[in-house]
Design a binder for these strands. Structure first.
Length: 567
DNA sequence: GACATCATGAATTGCATG
DNA sequence: CATGCAATTCATGATGTC
């Protein structure tokens, strides 16, 4: 503990503050991370601001206005460092994009008036980007950085780390992130002796060690599958166990999704292609009455998530009350299994009924029937009658509005719904964007499907000023366009069919035209990964699932372009 | 051709057991 | 630690009907 305190003093905190923080943190041997968080809170709270904290000075020195910094820290006083980084970067981004308007970003953020921003992205066109980039000399970059107030040493390290072709914005991002992360890093790199003194549950320590191990370690699925935490369940994590690498910090933010249970090594590979961010595995049974085990790789902040309202029912019986009348007492299910793309045959329902009538009260038969019900996700809709869900029932489970998929064949509805997001789960993750983008966001939506991500944003009441959507299926495009029209969206919708056709040039033109993207969202095809595939479960290199690499390509193009535009 | 219906395992993981 | 068992899974392809 003494070592910890010494470290705090070294970081510039006074002994009084440390004492107060330890006291407030409580416990015999509080975790240093918690103390640091409390210290941070104290040092940035209004009553302790007689002497401005080191952090505020640092942020101001980096070129943010004093008002911005104070405002953000007041607003997010209890946030972690990553949160503040993200928020300030978002503000800076928003300020840049407003361009000549030159509004005070803080007033803009705090004000409730949502005036008409229909012309927010009209007539923006830039030129000579490439020439500017090429003429960017390293010495020039160094001098620019020093002019911006960065210490020479820090600037040159960043230059070295980012490489010769990095833009100024990328380097600024790097320095910023490095400064914000430095305090945390001291603890992650803490010596063994100190580590053992930390009074933390063994499970957490094991996780910590695993995460810090080499990359050879395969990614394991967590149990319970709650990611960084789910509502109404213990185990909420407020810091990422493995921080986001500097190079991947947003904005622009991105959100990638796929099935959790893939062939071995797939998630390791996907993570390695997405900036080594560790996936967040979440089972949607914590959000609705059906399981849905999915992995999400994203660079979103994770603090202050919230659920969309109204929340769905958590059990089968509450979600489908009419089944209660027929539900046999020996079927103990309260949650359904994953909604797939195909349903059970009517023959199965018949076979089950006949068996139950013939062997009334036979526990062995009942056990077998329950197994079949689990396998095919059946619910009880009549006496001895177990039937698959109707499309509208799947819509409800997945968080879509009633009849979202109306207008296409029943077979196609099942297929499209089975391939979709669970809206409440995704919305929970995306909810952190709401305070960051009060005037709405610009979305690049890959593999849009029936628009699960957009429905989530809509239900979060985050305006979509622009959606560029890529979706190969015509019926899905029709459904999504119907949603767009029926909800009276005011933003622009631009549709593409194939991800392959969205090349670097098209991306640049779109981003110039609209001022960039705030969010890149999508889940690439799982056909060749999903366990239900008996025929072609060929892994990430399969015909459809290899489109994952197009997601990466497009994301990287967007982030590169965004870095150039930031200047 | 659109649509509906049906039959078709296996990879992976968790867990208990020895 | 090996082994076996149980549980779960964003699907594909063939066939029939209209």
């Amino acid at each position: 503990m003494d070592e910890t305190i010494a470290k705090f003093i070294e970081m510039g905190y006074s002994i009084e503050m440390i004492g107060r923080a330890v006291e407030e943190t409580g416990g015999e041997n509080p975790e240093p991370m918690l103390i640091l968080e409390t210290l941070f809170k104290i040092s940035t709270s209004s009553e302790a601001s007689s002497s401005k904290s080191k952090l505020i000075d640092e942020l101001i020195g980096m070129g943010f206005s004093e008002e911005s910094v104070i405002k953000v820290i007041q607003e997010h006083g209890e946030e972690n460092l990553e949160e503040i980084t993200n928020t300030l970067l978002s503000y800076a981004e928003a300020e840049k994009m407003r361009g000549t308007e030159n509004e005070d970003i803080n007033n803009n953020y705090l004000s409730d008036d949502n005036d008409d921003d229909g012309n927010l992205y009209s007539g923006l066109s830039s030129s000579d980007e490439e020439n500017e980039l090429n003429s960017f000399h390293e010495d020039g970059r160094l001098q620019d950085l020093i002019k911006m107030g960065y210490p020479r040493k820090e600037a040159s390290i960043a230059l070295e780390r980012c490489g010769e072709i990095a833009s100024l914005a990328e380097i600024v991002d790097f320095i910023f992130a490095a400064q914000m992360a430095r305090q945390l890093d001291e603890f992650w790199a803490a010596p063994e002796v100190q580590e053992r003194r930390i009074n933390e549950p063994p499970s957490r320590r094991r996780k910590l060690n695993t995460d810090m191990a080499t990359d050879e370690e395969l990614i394991r699925l967590p149990n319970p599958m709650i990611g960084f935490g789910v509502p109404k369940e213990p185990g909420l994590i407020t810091e990422r166990p493995v921080p986001i690498p500097n190079i991947a910090l947003g904005p622009p933010y991105f959100y990638y999704e796929n099935v959790a249970m893939t062939p071995k090594g797939v998630w390791d590979k996907m993570s390695s292609h997405l900036y080594d961010i560790k996936p967040e595995f979440v089972d949607s049974l914590y959000f609705c009455a059906a399981a849905r085990k999915r992995g999400y790789i994203h660079n979103l902040p994770i603090k202050n998530r919230f659920e969309i309202q109204p929340t769905p029912h958590y059990t089968i019986q509450e979600e489908f009350p009419l089944t209660k009348k027929w539900w046999p007492p020996w079927d103990k299910r309260t949650k359904l299994n994953c909604v797939l793309t195909c349903i059970a045959s009517a023959q199965l329902t018949n076979r089950i009924r006949k068996r139950l009538e013939k062997h009334e009260g036979d526990p062995a038969v009942q056990k077998d029937v329950v197994d079949q019900c689990k396998k095919w996700n059946l619910v009880w809709v009549g006496k001895n009658k177990a039937a698959p869900l109707e499309p509208y029932e799947m819509e409800r489970l997945l968080g879509f509005p009633n009849n979202h998929t109306r207008g296409i064949s029943r077979t196609d509805r099942y297929k499209s719904l089975g391939n979709s997001f669970q809206v409440d789960t995704v919305a929970y993750h995306l909810s952190v964007l709401k305070p960051l983008y009060p005037k709405g966001i610009k979305v690049l939506s890959l593999f849009t499907g029936i628009g699960g991500g957009e429905v989530a944003l809509h239900r979060l009441q985050i305006p979509m000023n622009l959606v560029v959507s890529v979706e190969i299926s015509e019926v899905n495009r029709n459904i999504f366009r119907s949603f767009w029209e029926q909800t009276n969206q005011r933003g622009d919708l631009i549709e593409f069919t194939n991800v392959e056709e969205l090349d670097d040039h098209k991306i640049e033109v779109l981003m110039d035209q609209y001022g960039g993207f705030d969010l890149v969202i999508g889940g690439s095809p799982c056909n060749n990964l999903a366990g239900a595939n008996r025929v072609s479960r060929s892994g990430l290199e399969g015909d459809q699932s290899s489109l994952f690499y197009d997601y990466c390509r497009i994301l990287e193009a967007v982030r590169r372009k965004a870095s150039r535009m930031r200047r």
